[in-house]
Design a protein around this nucleic acid. Structure first.
Lengths: 335, 335
DNA sequence: ATGAAAGCGCTAACAT
DNA sequence: ATGTTAGCGCTTTCAT
């Protein structure tokens, strides 16, 4: 900036005024300064700028995802990016792979860079370590799962409701032996969906058979294996509620490999690419990751704009998409 | 940091030394300082730190993708994140949706934040605007597509080779009327794959029929429509080479909706989730986005470590995965 | 081994 | 309308 001032033959502050679109610069000088800026290919150092401009923002936010490469996370990421971009805010993103330690490390790095706010899909259960951060003015929004022991804004899907609808749908098609396939019980959404599953069975007067509940299925291979085991039980399930993406994919693979995809009903939580072209096409409870991300980002920015109202806990609805696989009846026939 | 010094009853520089693990601090003082740091929950401001430490790095890199939410981009992103994380480097990511203007804006924002390096999946054709940046010491790596009019490191897949293999495979199964479905011709990879398609036909002595070439298929709907049109030609193709993800998905949908998925061969460029469970399963030329990302990031960091050797242009191999759809013969029978 | 003073690139506050 | 000075949080340089 000093170079620009020298080349333009003006004072440092004049350059600063031009760069920041502050009033009080004559057109003549402004033109000179702009010419010098162009000639030197100058760009103001955002970090230095924000240093003196205390109490001001770095115009960056941090985003902690399970994995930037998984479709749910990346859809969330994109929606957040778009909302942030509209405000000239850049996004740091990181994956923590359900590792609480990594969550803390990431948030620590974000803090070192003085991000204005942080959006987290949390891996840990206890967020008291963020209390100071929050008090210091960093906006904090939790997505997909709630904060642990911390009063903070949260946006999530209606996991229990979605599971109730899913299982209710299968019950409505006559199923009584419905298996639950799910992720690690340490994950909030996995627990909630299991809760919905049990609630739906209970309200239909169907006893829960623990043999039909399989959790901890972190990848499609494990899920496929679990499905195969379930189907070789003496009294196998007639329907599968695959409560997460990997379970759904594993379930599909397993059913096809045994050739039972038309005999056993399958209903998944979360939509999957190409689910519509499979035969039978896959019925799902669809979340809306775009809406989750947008809502979370809007909430974050509202806080950054000074909204100090009590914390919000948004629950976004999910939708049942019936495509065929969830409408197979217990005798193995499509409706 | 001043607060920490005050609380610990030491000089500012002593705190700085402790924070930076510099030698020359007595264990007694160091303990005091560490206690004060813990008590105040202090974290050094990385931006301020890098300000004085001139010529030093911000430990951040920028990443310009087509869309953080598309599977190819996000796989790339993850591989880059992992490589960066191992070095304590944080990643800014942004989507430019094939918009050259947005590419420039993003890179401009990165520059404002003084990122150490930038990895780009370029949307524009002319990167001379980055010349100054590059000379100023910002490492620059292009992925998936080359730089335009700029001497810079590049990592990409073997697009021509992959297309030659794909079309050769279809020719080998007896096809002579092979359609090409592709993305916008403004996109480098789309052009390269078309070039491979034509080369393969030429070397087999098959004349190119321009009626069988459809480009500009930005989404599955457009691709599906194109396939339907192709199949209602008086002399329709017996095989489809869908040279990009969206084209493949659209092609699959179109074939199923007409009920021709067992009569018309389909071979896609880029793998798709669930391609293996479809019936017939989808044959593809698979790229390795993880390897692309890792290679690009390693190249970037090698440059940041001072490697000044001539620019590198890596071409990574692709693999044909035969699953069924690409092995249907012209008379519409599986082999 | 420790710290005071200067300065990184910039903006706030205060001149002129 | 323009420039000067101080200072943001930190590291460097140079004393002690």
């Amino acid at each position: 900036m000093l170079d620009v001032a020298a080349l333009a033959g003006v004072g440092l502050k004049t350059v600063s005024r031009v760069v920041n679109d502050e009033p009080g610069v004559s057109p003549a000088l402004e033109a000179k300064v702009r010419r010098a800026i162009a000639q030197l290919n100058y760009r103001r150092d955002a970090n230095a700028s924000m240093l003196r401009r205390l109490g001001s923002k770095t115009q960056t936010i941090g985003l902690v995802l399970e994995d930037v490469a998984n479709p749910f996370s990346s859809a969330l990421h994109r929606a957040i990016e778009d909302t942030a971009r509209a405000r000239g805010v850049l996004v740091f993103a990181g994956s923590c792979d359900e590792n609480p330690l990594r969550e803390r490390e990431l948030i620590g790095s974000f803090r070192d860079r003085r991000v204005d706010g942080i959006i987290v899909v949390p891996a840990s259960e206890d967020h008291t370590y963020l209390y100071g951060e929050q008090r210091a003015g960093t906006a904090l929004v939790f997505v997909d799962r709630p904060a642990g022991h911390l009063d903070a804004d949260t946006v999530g899907s209606d996991n229990v409701g979605g599971a109730v609808v899913a299982v209710g749908h299968l019950l409505g098609h006559g199923h009584r032996r419905i298996a639950f396939l799910g992720d690690l019980p340490t994950i909030f959404t996995a627990r909630e969906r299991l809760r919905g599953y049990k609630e739906a069975l209970a309200s239909a007067g169907v006893a829960v058979d623990e043999n039909l509940i399989r959790t901890g299925l972190r990848d499609p291979q494990l899920a496929a294996q679990a499905v195969k085991e379930l189907l070789s039980l003496p009294n196998p399930p007639t329907a599968l509620f695959t409560s997460q993406n990997f379970s759904t994919i594993g379930g599909i693979r397993a059913l096809r490999s045994i050739g039972l995809e038309r005999q056993v009903a399958l209903l998944g939580f979360d939509d999957v690419v190409l689910a519509d072209v499979l035969d039978p096409a896959i019925s799902v409870i669809a979340q809306d990751p775009q809406a989750l991300g947008r809502t979370a980002a809007e909430l974050l920015f509202r806080r950054l704009d000074g909204d100090g109202s009590p914390s919000v806990h948004d629950v976004l609805p999910v939708t049942l998409i019936a495509r065929g696989s969830g409408e197979i009846s217990p005798n193995g026939r499509a409706p």
